[in-house]
Write a protein that binds this DNA or RNA. Structure first.
Lengths: 350, 350
DNA sequence: ATTAGCACTCGAAAAAGGCGAGTGCCAAAA
DNA sequence: TTTTGGCACTCGCCTTTTTCGAGTGCTAAT
């Protein structure tokens, strides 16, 4: 017994219906809503087959069927057809993303915001993967005696800074000298090759006494390492509470607790490969239910895609919603957001 | 009929019991838990009186009593006795707050984090009130042709920066010149006196053509204004979902939505007067239930206190929890956090 | 003023019942 | 062999009913 064409159509209909109603779909209801040339009895037989094949399941004996993870998988892989986005909506998305932007992270914030509002789900973006990136600039800026701002600029266009304490007696001029020396040595160096030793060696030939330098260099080093940290932007977490699946406070809390742990989310997204599905201009990866190895996300689906900064560097944006998600709509939206994001990043990074 | 001593003791017992059990307290249960020299009948009479006076109320006829807002108010104003904090806990709080600190905002983050974990409720902190503060420094830092970082330092010790676009042809030297001119003119100026015109007038005598300046000055201006914005740090929002009062998703969402609107929270806290209660070293303000003019917080209490940056500038930290809150414990904790925060700020700002 | 006693209340939890969408299976029709 | 009408059966959900008990107010005695 295989998944013939008719079964596919039926599965598709089941997923579609379940996605919109959030209620197990039964044979009669299916017939009512679609004009199949089938009786409910035949449909029942087909549904029994689909169940044996593992594509759908029953919450309990006398209920309708809901798609299993495998069913959703089949659906997203070969059954659904991706929506097209109206010009009006494209304009809207573009303007939302391009508004008030100074740097890449602004774009990311705008993008998550847009995605979350448009889809009604939780959206996320991660700063570009920095392991593959290198340092382009490092500046020490004297704020007042004893305090300086370390500004780190990475090849991905990410700018981070950190306020640090320095010895009180260091002068403006000395700080500048250190700044220039360190930058000269380190700029262009991949982040993972930068160690406390590389940093220290950069100031060997300056006129500043070693004793003054240690603290400054250590702070510079930690600032660089801090810039190496992946940042996660999550938007719309509260929307979880509007989703029927998470009507139960305990369940909702489980999910929200996981999502609130930025490190956990970042780590997971980062470990996901990049085996995205590519369809024409679109390109995305979907994780469904149990496929997501994060506590509390068993009933969720996770759609991610990749934006680019230059040729080699990339970051992820994504949507987290219930398995029962409007995949075709969400995918079209996340893809257009990705495209817009890429364009805007090019504008910024020239 | 007045609130005599016995009634006070009873009210106190009712609040204490309700706080711990979250269930309406009845006459017999009260007798069981406290060793009053009273019969339940007398107690019932007293409770009827307390109800007439408005200090307690019945959820429904055949249930026990719960404190009314007025009852809680009486409790916090004159009935409860504030806990003392153990030395071990003090040490813990101190080390949590002082760990990994570079600037004032780090302290605030640590403080909210500590408060939230310690109390189990939502905690909040706001950056120092900037209206009363002035600009101490403004630096333009060239990142690359066409991009610069504007660093704004305020008297409260708050450092903010913003990446902006500038004309491509501006050189490092020119940017420095602008930077110095603007800073010279503006430093020491109260933030609310800074306008686009003040900013522009500062560069009248520089050698740089006006046509180059407009964009830069505008960006500098918006960066300053952006620094003027109150930042809110909220920590532990998810804990809401563990509180019995918010076991209902709809209710929880109402509260979380309000809390997620930083502007709303900031605005409200900012408008609260400073009529704090002072008791020895402690000093705090409590808003209970309906007294809080924020949607969704009708069943909450809001405890705030003030930390200081120097003599004139101050900011707020606070706790949001259910009305049924362990006031004495929370107040002792928030006060010790406030004290620690003040000490650490002094260390940073010299 | 206090208290023992008692009838009464009323929400919450448990038990009972009916509804109905859904199911599987069979035997007849295509 | 596939499809279909028919039918008995299931079982979660919803509503109604019952039971239970902590709590109350009131009264009469202490």
């Amino acid at each position: 017994m295989a998944l013939d064409d008719r079964k596919k159509v039926i599965l598709q209909a089941i997923v579609d219906d379940y996605v919109t109603t959030c209620e197990p779909v039964g044979s009669k209801a299916l017939i009512d809503r679609h004009n199949f040339t089938l009786s409910s009895a035949t449909l029942r037989n087909e549904m029994a087959d689909l169940e044996k094949l593992g594509y759908i399941e029953k919450p309990h004996t006398s209920a309708g069927r809901i798609p299993s993870d495998k069913g959703y998988r089949e659906y997203v892989d070969s059954l659904m057809h991706i929506d097209t986005i109206s010009t009006a909506e494209k304009k809207d998305i573009e303007s939302r993303i391009a508004t008030g932007v100074g740097e890449v992270t602004d774009l990311l914030k705008n993008a998550t915001n847009t995605l979350s509002t448009k889809t009604g789900y939780v959206s996320l973006a991660m700063t570009p993967v920095l392991k593959k990136s290198y340092l382009t600039q490092l500046k020490l800026l004297m704020i007042e005696p004893g305090r300086a701002l370390v500004v780190v600029v990475l090849s991905a266009g990410v700018v981070k800074d950190k306020l640090v304490r320095i010895p009180n007696f260091l002068t403006d001029v000395q700080v500048n000298e250190i700044s220039r020396a360190v930058e000269k040595q380190l700029s262009g160096m991949p982040l993972d090759e930068i160690t406390l030793i590389t940093v220290a060696s950069s100031v060997k030939n300056t006129s500043i006494p070693d004793s003054f330098l240690n603290q400054v260099l250590y702070e510079a080093y930690t600032a660089i390492k801090q810039a190496d940290k992946l940042d996660v932007y999550l938007e719309g977490k509260n929307r979880i509470l509007s989703i029927p699946e998470f009507n139960d406070v305990g369940r909702a809390k489980g999910l929200l607790d996981t999502l609130s742990d930025d490190g956990m989310v970042a780590g997971y997204v980062n470990e996901l490969g990049t085996e995205e599905i590519t369809e024409g201009d679109d390109s995305y990866m979907i994780r469904i239910g149990q496929e997501i190895a994060l506590e509390g996300l068993e009933d969720c689906s996770f759609i991610t895609t990749t934006y680019k900064v230059g040729d080699k560097i990339s970051g992820n944006i994504g949507i987290i919603g219930p398995k029962r998600m409007e995949y075709s709509k969400v995918i079209s939206q996340i893809n257009f957001v990705r495209k817009t994001l890429n364009d805007e990043i090019k504008k910024i990074n020239g």
